[in-house]
Design a protein around this nucleic acid. Structure first.
Lengths: 231, 231
DNA sequence: GAGTGGTCTAGACCACAAT
DNA sequence: TTGTGGTCTAGACCACTCC
């Protein structure tokens, strides 16, 4: 069957951009022009062009025209799956050691990140995730009690903290950073790393209902873990 | 001024999802229902719902209804900007040392990654990027000659390899991985790192016109660089 | 003033799900 | 058979830019 008209138009525009026939900043035909060329209503053209603009391939300037977007900004997206997904996907068996479940007082940098006062109580869990018994990730997580009052009573051998939090606090935003770090001794031994071996540290702060809900350090053994993805 | 109707509808739906008023898998009101409720044409409702479905907040099932999407898959997106953008954005001055510009023969793992035969010629550049004079990234890049025949004659003090490649070979896909690694000695000294300091290694393979075009190792000093982003 | 994109309408026909 | 989403039309009015 014939694909929908808006898709034919999208692909026609895409092909022209990919082929370099139109260069960055070039003006593309106007909506009425494309409507005539493809013998469709303007609304149909509008959908095609609007979707390409949403994908940053085109830039629209009301009153003046539609232009080929600047060269993709070398932006790249990395997808980070949850540890248990990641392990199962590789055919491994996921298990969890619960190393710490406690209530602690917020210290300065963490308090600022989570937007609570210093000395306020926070829930802390430290878990070691294993793939087929081999340490795969050490998860240190601080949770704002208001966001998940029942957090400490969960059985983290059955449900990962992020799975639980996702359930009780629909997350709106996640900030994170990725670093290469030498672990402290206890982290190093937990991950069964040789001295001097670096870790990949994924630090994540998640927000729910407009407030910070949880902050986590995910330590991966650098010698056998990597974050991958594609665009 | 009043926001457009389709946005009012989007926000109304979003608020209901964020508040947990509708749970995963719940059916939301049909298009005709929403059109009646908001006193707009169905096309207007359709745009609102279609855009939320494109953002994976809703799932549409033709013939049966529209449903709240499954819990976000704990997927997280990292945006990686080009090194010169990154440096300028921080208010720094970007400069480049060109350390190597050469034609080499493809060795086994690289040949496989780039989809060329072993022993085939590749272009190799090694560049050290600095922010205000301080080493910020060591870039080792291999380029398939067919993708950019003029690559070696560029002035990489003026244009970064990725900027140049973006210009001559519109990229269709990028695969990458992020690792924590101890650098070899020459890399370590180039980045002015103390012995034992880890690096963040971003490895990237880019494709253009259906074929691999370039493979790069981007080494960041682990003690003063991180990759950040938010969702 | 002519041209552009941004939005919207009130219909329409279709393929497909559930019943 | 009824209801759903998927698509499309042929108009329309607006705010804006460019000349």
């Amino acid at each position: 069957m014939e694909p929908p008209a808006y898709l034919r138009i999208k692909n026609w525009l895409l092909a022209r951009i990919e082929a370099g026939e139109w260069r960055e900043g070039d003006r593309i035909p106007s909506e009425p022009e494309l409507a005539r060329r493809f013998k469709v209503a303007r609304m149909t053209v509008n959908r095609a062009v609007r979707e390409l603009a949403a994908a940053h391939l085109l830039v629209r300037a009301p009153g003046s025209g539609t232009f080929v977007a600047p060269p993709r900004h070398e932006a790249t997206l990395v997808e980070i799956r949850s540890i248990s997904d990641e392990i199962r996907r590789g055919g491994g068996v996921h298990s969890t050691d619960v190393r710490k479940v406690a209530e602690v007082r917020a210290e300065a940098p963490l308090a600022a990140e989570l937007g609570v006062a210093e000395g306020e109580p926070l829930f802390l869990t430290v878990l070691l995730h294993r793939a087929d018994g081999v340490p795969a990730q050490l998860e240190e997580r601080w949770v704002v009690p208001a966001a998940a009052p029942e957090y400490l009573t969960q059985d983290f051998a059955q449900i990962t903290p992020s799975e639980y939090l996702m359930r009780v606090a629909p997350l709106a935003r996640v900030d994170y950073r990725i670093e290469a770090r030498l672990p402290i001794e206890t982290t190093r031994t937990a991950l069964a790393l040789a001295p001097g071996e670096p870790c990949l540290l994924l630090h994540r702060c998640s927000f729910s209902r407009g407030r910070a809900a949880s902050s986590a350090n995910l330590w991966y053994p650098g010698n056998r873990y990597r974050l991958t993805g594609h665009l």
